[in-house]
C-alpha cells in the first residue's frame, strides 16, 4: 500500500474511531439493545434528522454565526407546507416548505446584514417573531397532516434526501467558490476582505444557502413526526442545540471534513442520547450527559498536544526504567 492510500485508511479509521468507541462502550453496558440491527437503523434515522439540521447550520457556524431561529423556521415552514399540501398534495408540501424556508432565511439574513447586529441577537429576535407568527398561523388555518407526506420521514425517502443533501453540501462546501470563501472568512475576516471577499454579502448568502438545506431538514422532520405544533416562549430553540453540538464535534474532528464530521458528531450524540433512554435515565439528566460528552470531547481535542506530550514523556520514562 502506498503512502497516499495509507493516509486515507488512517484518516477513515480516525474518523470512525470516535463513534465506534462510544458505540462499543454503550454496547458493552447494554448488548441486548446496542448490538441489534433495528437499534442501529433507528439511530441512523435519528442521526440523519440531526445531521440535516446541523448541515443547514454548518455554513453559518463556519463564519462565526450562531442562529437560534432555526427551530422556529422549521416549524413555520412545516406549517405552511402542510397547509399547502391540502390544496396541491405532496408538491404543495414541498413547495410550501422550501419557499417559506428560503424566505425566512432571507429575512433573518437581511436583518443581520442590514442592521449589523450580532447573529445571536438577530436569531433570538427572529425566533420570537417566527414563533408568534406560527402560533397565529396555526390558530387561523386548520392545518391537517396528510398521510402522503410521511414518505419524507420514512425509509427510503429519508435516506434518499440525506444522500442528496450530503452530495450537495459536500460539493458546495468543498468545491465551490462560496465554500472556499466561507472557510476564508472563518479563518480571518480581515484577510479574506483583502482578497476581495465581500464578507457581509457572503454571510447573507450563508443564511440563504443554509435555509435551502434547512428546508430538506423540515421535509424530513414533518414527514417523520407526522405533525407540526407551533411553540412559544423560545421552546423552538431547543431543537437547534443538539444538531449544533454535532456540528461542533464535526468541526473539531481533525481527520475529516466538517460535512462528514457533522454526521459523525450527530451519530455520537444520537447514540449517547438513545443509550441513556435505553438505560432508563430521566430526560433532564440526559441533557447533562450529552453536555458532558461534548465537554469531554472538546476538552480532549483542545488539549491533544499537551496529552500527546504527556504520553510520550511517560513512555520515555517507562523505557528508561526498563
Amino acid at each position: 500500500m502506498n503512502n497516499k492510500a495509507l493516509n486515507i485508511v488512517k484518516r477513515v479509521l480516525l474518523a470512525i474511531a470516535l463513534p465506534a468507541i462510544v458505540y462499543l462502550i454503550l454496547g458493552i453496558i447494554r448488548p441486548d439493545i446496542y448490538f441489534s440491527f433495528n437499534t442501529l437503523i433507528m439511530q441512523l434515522t435519528q442521526t440523519m434528522k440531526l445531521t440535516l439540521v446541523g448541515w443547514a447550520m454548518l455554513f453559518g457556524m463556519s463564519v462565526g454565526l450562531f442562529d437560534f431561529s432555526v427551530g422556529s423556521r422549521i416549524i413555520l415552514a412545516g406549517l405552511v407546507g402542510i397547509h399547502m399540501s391540502q390544496f396541491m398534495g405532496v408538491i404543495g408540501f414541498v413547495l410550501g416548505v422550501v419557499v417559506t424556508s428560503l424566505i425566512l432565511a432571507g429575512i433573518t439574513g437581511a436583518a443581520f446584514a442590514g442592521l449589523r447586529i450580532p447573529s445571536i441577537i438577530t436569531g433570538y429576535a427572529m425566533l420570537l417573531i417566527f414563533e408568534s407568527i406560527a402560533t397565529i398561523y396555526q390558530k387561523k388555518f386548520t392545518v391537517i397532516v396528510t398521510d402522503n407526506i410521511a414518505i419524507f420521514g420514512k425509509a427510503p425517502g429519508i435516506y434518499v434526501l440525506t444522500i442528496v443533501a450530503f452530495v450537495l453540501i459536500y460539493v458546495v462546501f468543498n468545491n465551490t467558490k462560496f465554500g472556499y470563501q466561507i472557510k476564508a472568512i472563518g479563518g480571518n475576516e480581515a484577510v479574506a476582505r483583502s482578497m476581495g471577499i465581500k464578507a457581509v454579502q457572503l454571510k447573507l448568502l450563508t443564511y440563504i444557502v443554509g435555509g435551502a438545506f434547512l428546508s430538506i431538514a423540515a421535509l424530513v422532520e414533518v414527514g417523520y413526526t407526522g405533525s407540526v405544533t407551533a411553540k412559544t416562549s423560545m421552546q423552538s430553540m431547543q431543537s437547534c442545540f443538539t444538531p449544533m453540538m454535532g456540528v461542533m464535534i464535526g468541526m473539531n474532528l481533525a481527520s475529516c471534513n466538517p460535512v462528514v464530521g457533522s454526521f459523525i458528531g450527530s451519530f455520537c450524540i444520537s447514540i449517547v442520547g438513545s443509550g441513556l433512554v435505553a438505560l432508563g435515565i430521566e430526560s433532564r439528566l440526559q441533557n447533562v450527559v450529552v453536555g458532558l460528552f461534548l465537554l469531554v470531547f472538546l476538552g480532549l481535542k483542545g488539549n491533544s498536544d499537551r496529552l500527546s506530550h504527556l504520553f510520550s514523556r511517560k513512555k520515555k520514562e517507562a523505557v528508561n526504567i526498563n
Binding site: N175, Y180, K183, A184, G186, G187, A190, V191
Partner: peptide
C-alpha cells in the same frame, strides 16, 4: 494578520484569489 489565512493550508491560500479561473460549469472547482 492581513495577507494570509494562517488557519488554512497552503493549497487553500494559494488558490483563493484564482477560484474564478478554476471553475468548471460555472460553480464546480
Amino acid at each position: 494578520t492581513e495577507s494570509m489565512l494562517i488557519s488554512m493550508n497552503i493549497q487553500e491560500n494559494v488558490v483563493l484569489p484564482s477560484l474564478d479561473h478554476l471553475k468548471v460549469a460555472g460553480f464546480f472547482i
